[in-house]
Simulated scan of single mutants.
Amino acid sequence: MGKLDGKVAVVTGGAKGLGEAISVQLANEGAKVIAADMGDLTYTHENVEGYKLNVTDVAGVQTFFDEVVAKYGKIDILVNNAGITKDAMTRKMTDDQWDLVLDVNLKGVFNLTRLIGPHMQANGSGSIINISSVVGVFGNIGQANYAASKAGVLGLTMTWAKEFAMKGANVRVNAIAPGYIMTEILKTVPEELLQKFAALTMLNRLGQPEEIAKVALFLASDDSSYITGQTLNVNGGMRL
């Protein structure tokens, strides 16, 4: 018996990297996972179904929601993981860099949740997990757009924890704020920089995608049945 047997989960940005790790972790515990992403899945799992989706496309998100509910009858878990970076110092940041990051990282989260949150509320239960970032908590030089988007996700998390629990619904909304995690993107970073990032943590190492995925599983399952409106900082004790 898995912790998520009979559950239906949506994971955005689920084609690779952190989204892949989360999708596989939830699927291994019995959930049927719809991994929504603009790209093709880079892996296979009998319980994971890929779906091409741009989270900024409002009409596309509505179609996605309608199709998933028509096919599976419900959505029990939503992991808002899709995100991008377009880094630049504030004085050099273009409107396009600002708008695109906010559109994907913040508006994209809103687009999915404004449909799935009320759906969960009507069904009486559900778990929403928003992937923020250590940068959304502490800020970071050259990432004003990313920091703003990820800090905004934390505000949405606390707001939705209140909204979707109204009228007695058991809908929980929490956030995970990862530190530097060894996904494919970091594997292209020079080793000396990776060592510098690791030295910023109390544990003196970078995180692995599976370590974030296990926290997502915890928040998705009944193991966290009395936790809502919270941000779990999973960063090895990082100090920026």
Score class of each variant (00 low, 15 high):
residue 76 D to T: 11
residue 58 V to I: 15
residue 89 M to C: 06
residue 110 F to T: 08
residue 149 S to I: 10
residue 127 S to I: 09
residue 79 V to E: 06
residue 141 I to S: 03
residue 59 A to T: 12
residue 147 A to K: 03
residue 55 V to T: 13
residue 152 G to S: 01
residue 115 L to W: 09
residue 83 G to M: 13
residue 147 A to C: 10
residue 132 S to Y: 05
residue 145 N to A: 09
residue 101 V to T: 13
residue 91 R to P: 04
residue 92 K to R: 15
residue 81 N to H: 04
residue 96 D to P: 00
residue 113 T to N: 14
residue 95 D to S: 14
residue 112 L to T: 13
residue 55 V to N: 05
residue 114 R to L: 09
residue 88 A to H: 03
residue 96 D to E: 15
residue 117 G to Q: 05
residue 133 S to M: 05
residue 93 M to A: 01
residue 56 T to P: 04
residue 100 L to W: 00
residue 123 N to E: 15
residue 65 F to P: 09
residue 66 D to V: 13
residue 95 D to Q: 14
residue 70 A to L: 09
residue 85 T to P: 04
residue 118 P to G: 04
residue 74 K to L: 02
residue 142 G to V: 04
residue 138 F to Q: 11
residue 81 N to K: 06
residue 144 A to Q: 00
residue 60 G to W: 08
residue 105 N to I: 08
residue 100 L to S: 08
residue 128 I to E: 11
residue 133 S to D: 06
residue 153 V to G: 02
residue 136 G to E: 09
residue 138 F to D: 13
residue 87 D to P: 02
residue 64 F to P: 06
residue 69 V to L: 04
residue 94 T to P: 03
residue 82 A to S: 14
residue 149 S to R: 09
residue 142 G to P: 03
residue 126 G to E: 12
residue 132 S to A: 11
residue 84 I to Q: 11
residue 86 K to W: 07
residue 154 L to R: 15
residue 80 N to Q: 04
residue 98 W to T: 02
residue 121 Q to G: 07
residue 152 G to E: 01
residue 101 V to I: 03
residue 106 L to P: 01
